[in-house]
Design a protein around this nucleic acid. Structure first.
Lengths: 227, 227
DNA sequence: ACCTGAACACCGTTCAAGT
DNA sequence: ACCTGAACACCGTTCAAGT
């Protein structure tokens, strides 16, 4: 039987974080505001400070919320690089739906339980693959970060919610590139489409994962005798 | 002979950007403020709006300032991957001194002349290496972005200027990691040092460049017949 | 323990005006 | 063309108080 401590809290930190996530997905990270969150929950701004030390603490919690969505595959007998691909894919699945929030992760993975679990699994796998500890930490970090980059810089990504504004922005960017002097920037002009819009998202992300994986494999091969 | 247009401007946009760069290097990106820049130049905040559309426009100029520092090596007869390494190294040299500003680049490379030149050179090289245009744009972008990640997430990097505060923050982080349950997070605990501090910066960055390079090479090998 | 109210020290930016 | 002055609509956060 749980004893009632008198006044039960009216505010649920998890619901605050959920609101923050919804706001960021719709209007970008910058739209997250203590005052706005307070208003949405029918409470004074200062009420939030009972549950979060400050705004940065709230953003830490938001990052933790994303990391909790990572559905890590079980360790298996597969070769290490295939397992690594599975981990990267799981991370990608978790962050793709929240492109503006993803940028919070790189500096915050070590601050939450799900983040630590992810790092532990990654380091274990890379150790198994033969990486010395320092290389494992750097290579693992770089691979994870490259997924974040993939999401935050996906051609056509914008902070704006309105699809009309978004399309206009993309069109403007593309025509700006197309209008460049073709004798000076031939490849840029030719790639104007690819630089501004992601025609096939799945191919884009698959290639991104392979890039990170190839980076890890390359370092691995390098640090061992060649023949 | 240049005719005087009457009142010559008292404000030099380049000097504003230089101030912004100095402020960011010392106190982080967040310390850049229209009002503060105005004050440093003995002028009303609104005076800046004659030279920059808004704050974002000023940040675009700041990013362009960094990109202008990239000292691109001449094209040569070297193999493409060695030339690519040269480009990456040149970029790294330009952004390492400005870790907090580096994060502005990924979304702004295509907005300035130096950025466009960099992208043009990269795309040309990757085309020469046999990459189809879409792959070249994505792989090139990822490689460049990975350098930014390297700089912005260098273990031990902080926004704070005070070395005392910085050391304290690092120490706190490390002991937090060391205090974790070793049976649950054995690799994290073992790597507590490497995760919080960069013992050898040059090795760190060399490995980072090789990671990006290996990523590119790996994709290249993949998209061609194996034997 | 949990929330309120008022206040402080900031922001970016618009608008109308001066020279 | 270039800068000023006053104002608007915001921020995060401290401090003292209420229940």
């Amino acid at each position: 039987m749980s004893r009632n401590t008198g006044t039960q809290p009216r505010l649920d930190p998890d619901k605050i974080v959920a609101s923050a996530l919804r706001i960021a997905d719709a209007e970008g990270l910058g739209a997250i505001t203590i005052r706005r969150l307070a208003q949405e929950h029918g409470v004074t701004p200062m009420a939030l400070y009972r549950h979060f030390r400050d705004k940065d603490d709230l953003l830490d919690a938001l990052a933790a919320r994303l990391l909790a969505d990572v559905d890590l595959p079980e360790a298996s007998a597969e070769p290490w690089d295939r397992q690594m691909r599975g981990i990267l894919a799981a991370c990608l699945d978790a962050i793709r739906p929240h492109p503006t929030v993803a940028g919070l992760l790189p500096t915050r993975v070590l601050l939450s339980e799900p983040g630590l679990t992810l790092v532990e699994r990654t380091l274990a796998l890379l150790a198994e693959a033969g990486f010395p500890p320092e290389q494992a930490t750097e290579v693992g970090s770089q691979a994870l970060c490259s997924l974040v980059t993939l999401v935050t810089t996906e051609p056509g990504a914008t902070e704006s919610t309105d699809p009309q504004t978004r399309d206009d922005a993309i069109r403007a960017k593309r025509s700006a590139l197309s209008a460049l002097a073709p004798q000076r920037y031939p490849h840029v002009v030719a790639a104007a489409d690819a630089l501004t819009l992601c025609t096939d998202r799945d191919t884009y992300y698959e290639l991104g994962v392979e890039f990170a994986l190839a980076g890890i494999r390359g370092i691995s091969a390098q640090s061992r005798p060649r023949r």
